Simulated assay, not measured.
Amino acid sequence: MNMSREAMWLAVGFIGQLAFTGRFVLQWLYSEYKKRSVIPVSFWYLSIVGSLLLLAYAIYRADPVFIIGQSFGIVVYLRNLQLIAKQKPVKDEQPSA
């Protein structure tokens, strides 16, 4: 099956949005499991994946508002992973504020 260019970019956008939304579902379910509010490290990885895919889609659509918004988010997500990596014991979760 040959996917058109437009259909391929729509798929990128939808997959990015799915990953981005999935991080909230992950955080919610993980917090319910732990019976307290926590942000698992995988939240930040899903944030990066979703944000990069949405950034690619925004660039394709030439949407400057969307491009700036997704670009800034990637910086925040990467910084959070750096901070987590610097913690003495590497934990599966990070307490939320």
Results as ranks from 00 to 15, higher is better:
Val90Cys: 01
Gly73Gln: 05
Leu81Phe: 00
Phe20Tyr: 15
Tyr57Val: 00
Val90Lys: 11
Ala56Arg: 07
Ala85His: 10
Val65Lys: 10
Trp28His: 10
Arg23Asn: 05
Leu18Gln: 13
Arg36Glu: 15
Arg5Trp: 11
Leu29Cys: 07
Met3Glu: 08
Pro95Gly: 02
Phe20Glu: 10
Ser71Glu: 01
Met1Phe: 10
Pro40Trp: 12
Ile67Trp: 07
Asp63Pro: 03
Ala62Leu: 10
Gly50Asp: 06
Phe14Ile: 15
Pro64Phe: 07
Gly73Asn: 04
Arg61Phe: 05
Pro95Cys: 06
Leu10Ser: 14
Leu52Ile: 12
Glu93Thr: 10
Arg36Ile: 05
Phe72His: 02
Ile15Arg: 08
Trp44Val: 06
Asn2Gln: 15
Lys88Ala: 07
Ser51Pro: 00
Met3His: 05
Ser96Gly: 14
Ile84Phe: 04
Arg23Gln: 14
Ile48Gln: 03
Phe14Leu: 15
Ala7Lys: 14
Tyr33Thr: 13
Ile15His: 08
Ser71Asp: 00
Gln94Thr: 00
Leu83Lys: 12
Val75Asn: 00
Tyr57Gln: 09
Gln27Met: 14
Ile68Pro: 02
Ser37Gln: 09
Val76Gly: 01
Ser51Gly: 13
Leu81Thr: 01
Ile74Leu: 03
Val41Asp: 07
Gln27Phe: 08
Leu53Ser: 07
Arg23Thr: 08
Gln17His: 13
Phe20Val: 12
Val76Asp: 01
Tyr30Asn: 11
Phe20Met: 14
Ala97Met: 00
Leu10Ile: 15
Leu29Glu: 06
Leu26Thr: 09
Val12Gln: 07
Leu46Ser: 01
Leu53Val: 06
Ser51Lys: 01
Met8Asn: 12
Ser42Cys: 06
Gln87Ser: 13
Arg61Pro: 06
Trp28Lys: 07
Phe66Ser: 08
Arg36Asp: 09
Ile67Cys: 09
Ile15Val: 15
Phe72Gly: 14
Ser96Phe: 11
Phe72Ala: 15
Phe72Ser: 11
Ser4Glu: 11
Ile59Asn: 03
Leu81Glu: 00
Ser47Cys: 13
Met1Asp: 10
Ser71Lys: 02
Trp9Tyr: 15
Leu53Tyr: 08
Phe66Leu: 09
Ile59Val: 14
Leu10Phe: 15
Leu26Asn: 14
Leu18Ile: 15
Pro89Val: 04
Glu93Leu: 07
Trp28Ser: 10
Phe24Val: 07
Val25Arg: 03
Ile74Gly: 00
Ala85Val: 04
Met1Ile: 11
Leu46Glu: 05
Gln27Trp: 09
Leu26Ser: 05
Val25Phe: 13
Ser4Tyr: 06
Asn80Phe: 04
